[in-house]
Amino acid sequence: MHTTGRRTAPARVAGDLLLGLTLAAVPLFTVTALAASWGGSSWVLGLVTGTVVGVLALLRRRHRFGAALAGLGVAAVTVVSARLAALPEEPAPAVALALAVLVASAIRTLPTRQAATVAGGGLVVVVGSWLAAVPFAPEATVIPMVNAATWLAAVAAGLGGRLLVARREASVERVRRDERLAVARELHDVVAHHITGIVVQAQAAQIVARRGPAEAARVADSLAGIETAGSDALTSLRRVVGLLRDADDASPVAPGTEALSTLVSRFEGHGPEVRLRLPADGDPSPPEVTTAVYRVVQESLTNVTRHAPQSRTVTVDVRRVPEGLTVEVSDDAPHTGALDTRGGYGLIGMRERVESLGGTLRAGPRPGAGWSVVATLPLTDGARR
């Protein structure tokens, strides 16, 4: 498994080797040029400074902030020393290149305050180099211009890398959040529905058992229903756990018309009558749409069991509309204060699931009596987000 955005060890070694060769070649070129123009030992300061800052640049990963501050400090001392000793202008190109590596690396990876400190330190060195050169020539000289250009390039490279890292981390966090929400919705849909059925049937069994031995058959039916609901819950939970483990049995399941019919028949066993209306053309919808429809119906029926046990009839209507596919689940329970404020994680999960496919969801009391949930899902790719 590889880590996106991070360089592998061979690539890092190759990059450091190329950088080391460059940091060694530039000082040698500078020394040769100074020996030919200034003569004497004018090249010693530049060679020593270039070597020290170059080594710091190669070792920057051990302590980026400390290496950057040390390199800037060496460069500042070199500027002052060159000015007092009337030596060639500093920092030389070799030092400027090494400083650029240190500054860019620090800005890209360090916390904001430390990165700003390093960037400010680099600006101080650039300004100091420019001021030190002014007494020799009123006009801008080449060395200060090179230092300013390398500093600007280092800041731009550091900020660019920092922005890419931030975008990558935001993208990873967004994916993780979507995965957490998806798992949370699956767990809620599975557990809430099946456990609600188990609780209702267990309560019914207790009520029937109090009536005497003559009702033993009905108690047995309730216990069988509890066993079925428990088995379904375990199967569904294993599927969700498989998704988390990336197991072979975790392939996504897209419930279709048969699954809706089974869901409705299971609900009628311990709830009001359900009228199911389905499109005449079967299940040509995309799997993610049929799954969303199934979950909306499942959660809506669970909410009827929880919040509207006095309902006599529930209607599940799945139909084609110009916008795509619409599923509406409505009941006829009398309005109460509690009913008019149905909500919770189930409704939030339904809305998130539908909106993630580019659809819309409305839920609220019906005129006169009852509650309805209406979800509209697009069937074309262009309508999805």
Score class of each variant (00 low, 15 high):
Gly5Phe: 00
Arg7Asn: 08
Val13Ser: 13
Gly20Arg: 04
Ala24Ile: 10
Ala25Met: 13
Val31Gly: 02
Trp38Asp: 13
Trp38Met: 01
Gly40Met: 11
Gly40Glu: 10
Val55Ala: 05
Ala57Tyr: 05
Arg61Glu: 13
Phe65Tyr: 15
Ala68Asn: 07
Val74His: 05
Ala75Asn: 08
Val80Asp: 07
Leu84Glu: 15
Ala85Tyr: 13
Ala86Glu: 14
Pro88Tyr: 08
Pro91Cys: 09
Ala92Asp: 15
Ala92Phe: 02
Ala92Thr: 14
Leu97Lys: 07
Ala104Cys: 03
Ala106Trp: 02
Ala106Cys: 01
Gln114Val: 13
Val118Pro: 01
Gly121Pro: 07
Gly122Thr: 11
Trp130Pro: 03
Trp130Tyr: 14
Ala133Ile: 05
Pro135Asp: 03
Val142Gly: 13
Pro144Arg: 08
Ala149Lys: 04
Val165Thr: 08
Val165Ile: 12
Ala170Arg: 15
Val175Arg: 15
Glu179Lys: 07
Leu181Tyr: 11
Ala182Cys: 03
Ala184Ser: 15
Ala184Asn: 09
Val191Cys: 14
Thr196Gln: 05
Gly197Trp: 02
Ala202Glu: 01
Ala202Arg: 11
Val208Tyr: 12
Ala214His: 15
Ala217Phe: 00
Arg218Gly: 02
Ile226Gln: 13
Thr228Ser: 09
Gly230Ile: 01
Val240Gly: 05
Val241Leu: 12
Asp246Trp: 10
Ala250Arg: 11
Pro252Asn: 00
Val253Ile: 08
Pro255Phe: 11
Gly256Trp: 05
Glu258His: 14
Ala259Phe: 14
Leu260Met: 07
Ser261Ile: 14
Thr262Val: 15
Gly269Phe: 09
Leu276Met: 07
Asp281Pro: 03
Gly282Cys: 04
Asp283Ile: 07
Pro284Ile: 08
Pro287Thr: 04
Thr290His: 01
Thr291Trp: 03
Val297Cys: 03
Leu301Ile: 10
Arg306Lys: 15
His307Ala: 01
Ser311Asn: 03
Thr315Trp: 08
Val316Leu: 06
Glu328Val: 12
Ser330Asp: 02
Asp331Met: 08
Leu339Lys: 02
Val354Pro: 00
Gly358Asp: 06
Gly359Arg: 07
Arg362Thr: 14
Arg366Val: 14
Arg366Ala: 14
Gly370Met: 06
Gly370Tyr: 02
Ser372Ile: 02
Ser372Arg: 14
Val373Cys: 09
Val374Cys: 10
Val374Asp: 11
Arg384Tyr: 00
Arg385Pro: 01
Arg385Tyr: 10
